[in-house]
Write a protein that binds this DNA or RNA. Structure first.
Lengths: 224, 224
DNA sequence: TAGATTGTTAATCGATTAACAATC
DNA sequence: TAGATTGTTAATCGATTAACAATC
């Protein structure tokens, strides 16, 4: 009791974000290996697939426990399950999509999230001509019902695909509704309280940094 | 002559990738300020907008030159132009989209790239029922004509939106055609020679790292 | 047991930040 | 000139990597 209280005060883990951000890649690689029938993998082999040093893989895993056997390596199925557990990928997460324009439609029709435990359960838009439509098997509801929709469908993650001018407002409303994880598709970094997680999908920034290397005849140093 | 030869041998700048990746964000913020009529900005003000320390902004800029005036700050229009020049954003880049499925269509219809100097000039697909269609104002051509299309339209950047099973093959062909910058939308990290730049847009990885914080009741440490 | 590979500590590397002389 | 802010160096911080004892 005292110790769990202590965790609450600090409100923070010691696991660096950069480590957390690598775990989904480990999950992906391990899933592939499992599908290929590989039973055991060592850090050397994982490192080759992931373009990461074996030392880094072992260090990353060591933040969460001891999952390998000396002299052998890691059981692929076991490590995969452990990492899924750590990342919270053994349960289904209910996701609402706010904004049903071209981009929102593409997201609602994209089948890639569901198999990995992200269930798109609600779609919302402000445009009266869009509200009431069925998109990707979901009825589009008015944003005015945001709070009710989030409660009724037990939504914990929001995908925001509204025009840049409305993004901060929508994000503010989501935060007011208690949403703590937001995937944002607008080319802007919305301001949120520090207990809310926002990730932005921003292909233009990627293009604009690649042109640096094209324009200057350089090669990247091989990052992420 | 000797010194330019030297640059060629090293084939590499000393500017860290992480610095280059911040420049497009500086450009975005400066563009906003310019639109708002702000004429002068100091590193303190820029830092607040970008959530970056003033010291880092000055350090980043110092890799490329001296753009400010002591005691004053930076002229917004001037710094913006310099950064655009450095990033190669003063010219138009011709982009080909490979893969005209749902995602490719969304990209071809997305108006967000063009205003920033990225011109979508060609669309390609393998599916005979898609080839010949007009999407986003472009005639869809067969992937078999990739090399001719790249030459004829002077394409230097490719956006790859094909199913995961075909991604590596398509990327290999693009590399063979001399493409040095690829924006990949498949959930896979294609292998490329080190002089080729690949950036992947992978929303699933973003979702999967956010669930770590949701599942464990933690807050992010505020990264990117 | 001998060989292999983990888990972990210590060393290295590189990026961020603080501090301040230069200078507008 | 006095005040402010840059550009840059040095200090700090944190992440990556190397090395190796533990151990399967």
């Amino acid at each position: 009791m005292a110790s769990s209280f202590e965790r609450d005060i600090t409100g923070r883990t010691e696991v660096p974000d950069v480590v957390v951000s690598r775990l989904p890649q480990y999950v992906r690689t391990l899933s592939q290996m499992l599908a290929e029938g590989v039973q055991i993998a060592n850090s050397q082999q994982l490192g080759e697939k992931l373009q990461i040093t074996p030392a880094q893989i072992r260090k990353d895993l060591s933040y969460f426990g001891r999952f390998g056997k000396q002299g052998r390596g890691y059981r692929v199925d076991h490590l995969l399950e452990e990492l899924k557990q750590i990342l919270g990928l053994t349960v289904t997460w209910n996701v609402a999509v706010v904004g049903v324009g071209r981009l929102g439609r593409a997201i609602l029709n994209y089948p890639g999230f569901t198999p990995d435990g992200f269930q798109l359960v609600a779609a919302l838009d402000d445009n009266p001509s869009v509200v009431g439509q069925e998109v990707g098997g979901l009825l589009v509801r008015p944003v005015s019902q945001l709070s009710e929709v989030i409660d009724n469908f037990q939504v914990t993650i929001a995908i925001v695909a509204v025009p840049i001018a409305y993004t901060q407002t929508v994000v503010d409303r989501l935060v007011d509704c208690g949403i703590k994880a937001i995937l944002n598709y607008a080319p802007i970094m919305p301001q949120v309280p520090e207990d809310v997680n926002v990730r932005s999908i921003d292909p233009l920034l990627s293009l604009q940094s690649m042109t640096y290397y094209l324009a200057n005849g350089l090669s990247p140093e091989k990052e992420l």
